[in-house]
Nucleic acid binder design. Structure first.
Lengths: 110, 110
DNA sequence: TCGTGGTATTGACAACTTTCGATATAAGAG
DNA sequence: CTCTTATATCGAAAGTTGTCAATACCACGA
C-alpha cells in the first residue's frame, strides 16, 4: 500500500543562500586562498606585484583573482602612485564565519 | 632608476590550500547550501526523497550534489531499507570554520 | 522469482571558470 | 609630451561544473 514518503517536506528556498554561496565561491580556489592567507599574515598591505611574483600565474590572471575577491567584498585596494595595494577587508573573516554559522549552527541543542 | 619592487616576496605555496579550497568548493553552491542548512536544522536524518521534493532539481542532480558533499566529508549517509538517510557529518562545522580560521586568523594582534 | 519504487551512475550538453596573450589605462620620471 | 612601469580589461582556448534523460542498482513485498 505504497508507504508515503519518509518525512514531511521542509521549505528552505535556495535563493536565501545565493549570497553566501557567492562568497564561498570566491574563496573556493587555492590561488585565491593563497592571496587571502598572504593578506591575513601581512602586517602591511600587499602590492599586486608581490602576488604576481609569488604565484605561478601571470599578471592578468592574478588581476582576475583579485577582482573576484574585491567583488566579493573580501579585500579592498588602494592605489598609491603606480602601485595598487590590497588588504583584507574589515570583517572579512567575520562575514565568512557568520555565513557558516547561520547555515550550520541553528541546530539548537536545548 | 628603476625602483625595486615594493616589498619582499612572501613564500606561501598554493597547494597548501588545495584541500581547504576543495572543501569550500563543496559548499559554494546554493543548492548544496540548502541541503546543508536543511540537515543542520533537522532533528533527525533526512531522506533523499525530501531533497528531491524540496529542491527544484530532479533526482539525479540531487544525488550528484549529495555525492559532492559526501566526498567532501561534510555529510554522511546510511541506507535503511529502500531509503537513504543523510545527516551532517560530525565536526562539519568545525572543519569548515577551522579552515577559515587557519587562513584568516593568523594575523596576531599582540 | 518477479515487480515496484527509491537511489546512484552514466553520458551528453550548456554554462561558467581559469588561464593566457594582446592591449588598454594610469601615473610617475625625464 | 613621451617613455616606462604597474595594473586592469578584453578575447579566446581549455577545463570544470550543473543539469537532465536514460539506465543501472538495490531492497523490499508478493
Amino acid at each position: 500500500m505504497s508507504m508515503q514518503c519518509c518525512c514531511p517536506p521542509k521549505g528552505l528556498a535556495a535563493d536565501v543562500f545565493t549570497e553566501s554561496a557567492a562568497m564561498f565561491k570566491a574563496i573556493a580556489d587555492p590561488h585565491r586562498l593563497t592571496i587571502l592567507a598572504t593578506l591575513a599574515r601581512a602586517s602591511e598591505e600587499v602590492c599586486v606585484c608581490d602576488f604576481t611574483e609569488g604565484l605561478p600565474l601571470n599578471q592578468p590572471t592574478v588581476s582576475h583573482h583579485l577582482r573576484i575577491l574585491r567583488e566579493a567584498g573580501l579585500v579592498t585596494c588602494e592605489r598609491r602612485g603606480t602601485w595598487v595595494y590590497y588588504e583584507l577587508a574589515d570583517g572579512a573573516h567575520e562575514r565568512l564565519s557568520d555565513a557558516l554559522a547561520s547555515l550550520l549552527k541553528p541546530k539548537v541543542k536545548t
